[in-house]
Amino acid sequence: MEAKKVAVLIRSAPYGMATAGEGFRALIGLVSMGIQTHVVLVDDGVMVALKNQSPEVLDMNNLVDLYAQLPGLGAKLYLHHPSLADHGISPDACIEAEVLDDEKLRRLISSVDHVITFN
């Protein structure tokens, strides 16, 4: 069977909800099982990519450091540009990732087998 491709949309900001953290655990599972995984930070999810996070003050695990490891683990990381703009964040303030406009996100979605959302 040909390798499955999925897009995982992370739509929630880090730390207030467990969503971005639990989403990471799920997508690491997908990657380790040979599923081609495209991770898109969208809506509040773009906040996950912001550099200089200090969640140790909350005694929580650093999510931006985890997401920054994704390319090395074989998953591709993307930022949804309109979401960045809505949140007043420049791509320069974020970790390295491909920036997608709506049309590119649409094309990514059509290229995968499933879309899994963490909202």
């Binding site: 739509r11 969208v42 809506d43 309109p82 709506d102 996100l105 649409r106 979605i109 909202n119």
Partner: peptide, 8 residues
């Protein structure tokens, strides 16, 4: 949440 659907 609806806005992403409306965009895409």
């Amino acid at each position: 949440a609806w806005q992403l659907a409306a965009r895409l």
